[in-house]
Nucleic acid binder design. Sequence first.
DNA 1: GAACAGATGGTTTTT
DNA 2: CCATCTGTTC
Length: 786
Amino acid sequence: MTLTYDKHLLPAYDRAFSGRPRPDPEKRPAITCADDALFVVAGPGSGKTTVLTLRILHQIFCGQVPPNAILATTFTVKAAAELRSRLLGWGFSLQKELLADSSIKGVDRQWIESVDINQVTTGTLDSICQQVLAEHRAPAEQPPVLIDQFLASTVLVRKGLFPGDRYKDPDFDAWLMRLNGGGAWGWNLGRRRTVLSTIWDRLQQDLTDVNALATSTAVTSGAKPHLLGALRDYQAELAANHWLDFGMLERRVLEDLQAGTLDGWAKRFRSILVDEYQDTNLLQEQIYFELLKHGGAGVTVVGDDDQSLYRFRGAVVELFSDFPTRLKGATKRKATTVFLTTNYRSTDQIITFSDQFIRRDAAFQSVRVAGKPRIVSPKNKKLGLPVLGIFREDLDQLSEAVATFIEGVASPKGFQLPDGNWLRLADAKHRGALGDMCVLCSSPAEFKRAAPARNGGPLPAPEARFPGRLREALTDRNISVFNPRGAPLGEVTCVRQLGGLLLEALDDRGMVQATDSTQKRIGPDAQRLFPEWRNEARVKQRSDKDLNNLICTWQSRTAPAGFRWPTSVTALELLYGIIHFLPEFHDDPEGQAYLEVFTRQLAAMSAISGFEGRVVTNPAKPELAEKSVRDLLCDWLAPIASDTAELDEAMIGSFPRDRLSILSIHQSKGLEFPMVLVDIGADFKTNHHKHAFKRYPKDGAMSHTLEDMIRPLSGLMTPSRSARDRAFDDLERLYYVAFTRAQEVLVLFGLNKIRPDGASIPNIAAGYDRTGTKHGPRWFITYLDF
DNA sequence: GAACAGATGGTTTTT
DNA sequence: CCATCTGTTC
């Protein structure tokens, strides 16, 4: 006898999670279907992770698939962690309950006892590829080293852009600038590097190479030699060091799979499951197909084409929508399609609004999965409130109004709606209500980029954007904001203090910082920020005697009596010495994330600096000592100041309940909140062409231009839709994701100029379609004009 | 409907 | 900084 879903798994589920409703029957085929290729199209809030988890557990417990023969991948680190914790949590509970079922006997019982859920392979495809290459290499082969973004960037600049002053070539520069889609404003070395590395990554993702680019007509003849030279030199430098960057990592795994050297690994899988498949690129698809060709594994892909947001990373949504055809072409298998359309997340009003939004634009419908049904509420639907709208004349009034609304909703009394009813969140008695809401913006940045100086005068102070104004307005109301991405790292107070203390301790009086050779390597941002950091450090030193002692000891490099100052000491030791006096770095979740930036960046720079992140003190050779400090300034602290080092999303575990979170729509993917406020146009004062791409694109952006350039050279056909159409598709998906994060209350806000019932500036999110027609679900927006 | 003065605003996402 | 948008005036 084998165990079944209905007789064993569901009863175990009931006992394990008493009170939680069973997964509805709609999910049954997706969980239990034994076909060897399953295509699950899962709308927002339809329980994607539940289905994936239960499908895996069903395969293990009922299908007796060994856990180590299962591979489950997702798209982001965060999603991977979530899937793993759900899988282990449910897996152990169900295992325990199945063992408590005395009707399960003999070999079945032995099987359940032998199961070790831990052995399921989960992770992002990148992390899995990294592991595979480390574990399965030929005995004599040198293991490839995966390099991070910082090192890759450094190599690209030093080996790609600098040699022969390539970046100064007018033709090459003009071509890069045009691809970037902007003018000369803010066009600096960092931007040039980003454009170049985007091209490089795209070549990998589309399974093309530099040589193919040589035949491209999209590269001007003046730019071509420099473009090819830069990319080839970068490639050669990585090869010489046995380095792999992110894109090459997956490429290597694909090549090894094709060559058969990873057969031992590939053949062990009996089931491969891929979450968020709508964001898969050609390279990743080919890895999955290659794995399937190697063994008899079944495949399950889950996703929603309407939520594909990562074109800039090479995602091609057609790989998802055409999955059955593409799978058949590659492996002769026939996929079974299952739609999950019941949304358990949101109220009926929000579901209807979102559904009308995504179906409103006729030109969008042809890129959606064929025959896709609309998302619907469950039978016992919660009607909920209408979608609310807060629109005001200017940024000042808007931030005040939104802050007043948030304060009201989070208060025990609540906020009175136009119909007289009071809106308050369940947890309003405590400040916990703030954790039940979030503000979604296309960018959480609190300040605009600084405008250029006038006539050589001082830099004007950067102007606040909506998130910054909202923070001010909420601070006045005694509500704090959680927005770790709101300011560049170098502008965050605790980062500035820590950075300044490190600078003071390492480089007393800025002797190293001021030397000429240093100025070449420390970028302008760091040049500007370092003195400010030092000032803040001195203020801190004056307030803490012990901290001051530590810094002074380092400055003089003298040990207490009876000890000798070491000739070489790691900067990590200094870092931990200092944060001992700065409690926010161990107590506060935001602080911990910032500390992690310092340690990660130090580790990264240690790999390329001859001093390995150490401080050398050698009176006989002062130039060595100086060089070791310079390396730390240039490759450790300067990247933090210039925002090259980035905050790791995974370090921000959960959002604090007592603060209002502000996040980008991309960051909100996969999350849900009882109340969501979406910025559909706090930035748009005029119908300005410069921000048209954020609301009503004129034509494609860099990712679309790159697709047009590289896809004809790759195995993928040239895109059938225009760049402009693809830009619209992307924008509609973005707002669809934003709207469907809300469980109970959805609030749209912006300036009056984009107000849906009177908008004068074209804006996808306010009901326009790409032909210029304004549609509306606008009749059921309730405007809050208090 | 042209010409002018004053305002406006600058891409964003990740392994 | 500087191209382009908006509103006003002729």
